[in-house]
Design a binder for these strands. Structure first.
Lengths: 136, 136
DNA sequence: TTGCCACGTGAAGTCGGCTTCAGGTCAAGC
DNA sequence: GCTTGACCTGAAGCCGACTTCACGTGGCAA
């Protein structure tokens, strides 16, 4: 595979170079070397960054993602933790599906206020039980 | 329905009272009145808060949620916007399903590093295309 | 060989979403 | 009637995730 400088990585991912440096400091990515002062990245960093972006939209913090994806090359990952994350994600997905259905209904429904529409409320009630306690 | 003071709402939702006041300032919830200085909430605020929590786990900002749920009682919601949100959410859900599958595979897979496991990479590659551009 | 400018660094600033604090108020139990 | 403790308020503080800044460095085209 090829080697990329930070500007190329930035172009491919849409992330500003400053963010890439920040991710490096946080241990999420690593350059394979330097050309003078300048970082040299292996092209595989692009996959890594895609995975990081994915983790972000799943609501994981950079720290959690670092734990999953490993400091450099994902050495020693706790498989139990991964399975737990997958389960948590699964629960989140189910709730989001409900929310999506609720939003779609709300977009179509003629009730004056969604919170007064029985259908909407039923849909929401089904998904609202027990928050994930993810927020601290 | 009944009326609740802020402490009861806090107990039912698990949210600290300060957060409830903050949400009120942001226009996400409203008290139906006061008892002296103290806020009095209608019990329906609980549903509203469940919906807000749901929106948060879906990655919406408080401002977006306020726009969807309305200042008080969800008056005049843009149905087109709701449908768009539902579509965006749907795309997010599909990507999260891939991530979940990837995590499950990684938890079971014996490859030394997930990023080197062909199965994991194939799963990820399938979901990594085109980020939602949700972040700013 | 030189000069430009993309890249580098550490530190400070920003923003959203709370959380904490200092100091005041008042409903309720004694 | 008086104390007490839950509530109130506005302002400040904190945390995560970046973003911006001020200034230094060196690869490379001319």
């Amino acid at each position: 595979m090829g080697e990329l400088d930070i500007a190329q990585v930035a172009r491919h991912t849409g992330l500003p170079a400053a963010t890439l440096r920040y991710y490096e400091r946080r241990g999420l990515i690593a350059a394979i070397g330097r050309h003078g002062l300048r970082r040299v990245f292996d092209a595989s960093v692009l996959e890594r960054l895609a995975l990081i972006a994915l983790g972000r939209t799943a609501g994981f913090s950079l720290e959690e993602i670092a734990a999953m994806v490993g400091p450099h090359g994902a050495p020693r990952i706790d498989r139990r933790m991964l399975a737990d994350k997958a389960d948590a994600l699964d629960r989140t997905i189910h709730r989001l599906e409900k929310l999506r259905d609720g939003l779609r209904h709300a977009a179509a429904c003629r009730a004056p206020s969604h919170l007064e529409c029985p259908t909407f409320r039923r849909i929401m009630r089904a998904s609202a039980r027990k928050r994930t306690a993810k927020r601290r």
